[in-house]
């Protein structure tokens, strides 16, 4: 066997790595640290405190944040449920449907929202909603979120389904299950980790979307990202850092969960021990 290349021995490996890590994560670290700063300043350290976390929940702006958080959560949950159902159906059709006309085009269409710059989607969605006279508000945000969440839900679900041997469904149908029963009792349980991972990914993508939401939300409604953006426009206060830290923690938690779930119990291509 060929010896594996030890990447660590390449010249400049360490400085480049450190540079990347710093650029990527130092700002996040600063926000997290200063969210515990017992001072109005965002640059001078004034001691450790949970003051700004209290401020979010009890301060003068707490009602605004609470509404925004509620909107974000309910929209993310509904959008994740809807897009996961659509993505599951799409995955079964694409992976199990054999070769049908326009299959490549279909895949391109499904994954388009990932490729198209978000600002383009945002403008297009706004123009479209205005053209058909769709009132901007909670519902318009939800519809837009369902649409752009589909590819994110689709990818882990389709990946999982590709790893499941077709003979399981054949065996179920051979044992007198209708196509629907075979899907419900055999394929769904085997796909479950992929479906859950897709759901969590869609949830997090919806939760932290800003660009599209900001374009199509209409007046008088905020989600957490748009509320944070609105607050920052009047100057960065440490409570925004606290709020950002909470959102960051939730995101990290859910993405980590999604990663482990999609890895759990991955079946082989054959039914072997």
């Amino acid at each position: 066997m060929r010896q594996r290349i030890n990447i660590k021995r390449y010249p400049g490996f360490l400085p480049v790595t450190i540079l990347c890590l710093v650029v990527l994560y130092a700002p996040l670290l600063v926000v997290m640290v200063y969210s515990f700063n017992d001072s109005l300043s965002i640059t001078r350290w004034g001691g450790f405190s949970f003051r700004w976390y209290m401020e979010i929940f009890t301060g003068p702006e707490s009602a605004k944040f609470k509404d925004a958080a509620w909107n974000s959560l309910t929209i993310a949950l509904s959008a994740a449920v809807a897009s996961t159902i659509i993505a599951t159906a799409a995955a079964v059709a694409m992976v199990r449907g054999g070769a049908f006309k326009g299959k490549a085009l279909n895949l391109a269409l499904i994954s388009m929202p990932i490729m198209v710059p978000e600002i383009v989607t945002a403008v297009a969605t706004l123009v479209f909603f205005s053209a058909i006279g769709f009132t901007l508000g909670y519902l318009s945000i939800l519809v837009a979120h369902i649409v752009f969440c589909i590819p994110f839900a689709y990818l882990p679900i389709a990946a999982r389904l590709q790893g499941i041997d077709g003979s399981y469904e054949e065996a179920a149908q051979d044992l007198y299950a209708s196509r629907f029963q075979a899907f419900l009792r055999v394929l769904m349980p085997l796909m479950a980790p992929g479906i859950l991972a897709g759901f969590l990914l869609a949830f997090i993508i919806s939760l932290d979307d800003f660009i599209i939401t900001n374009f199509i939300k209409g007046a008088g409604i905020e989600t957490l990202p748009t509320a944070i953006f609105g607050a920052v426009k009047q100057g960065i206060k440490p409570d925004i850092m606290a709020l950002s830290t909470i959102m960051l923690s939730v995101s990290i938690l859910i993405v980590t969960l999604s990663y482990f779930i999609s890895r759990y119990g991955r079946p082989g291509t054959k039914a072997e021990a």
Binding site: S167, Y168, E170, A171, D174, L175, P267, A271, E272
Partner: peptide
């Protein structure tokens, strides 16, 4: 599912 015939699959396809 409408044929009274059952199959033993090459790689068994037992429901895991």
């Amino acid at each position: 599912n409408r044929r009274p015939i059952n199959t033993v699959f090459q790689h068994y396809a037992l429901f895991p």
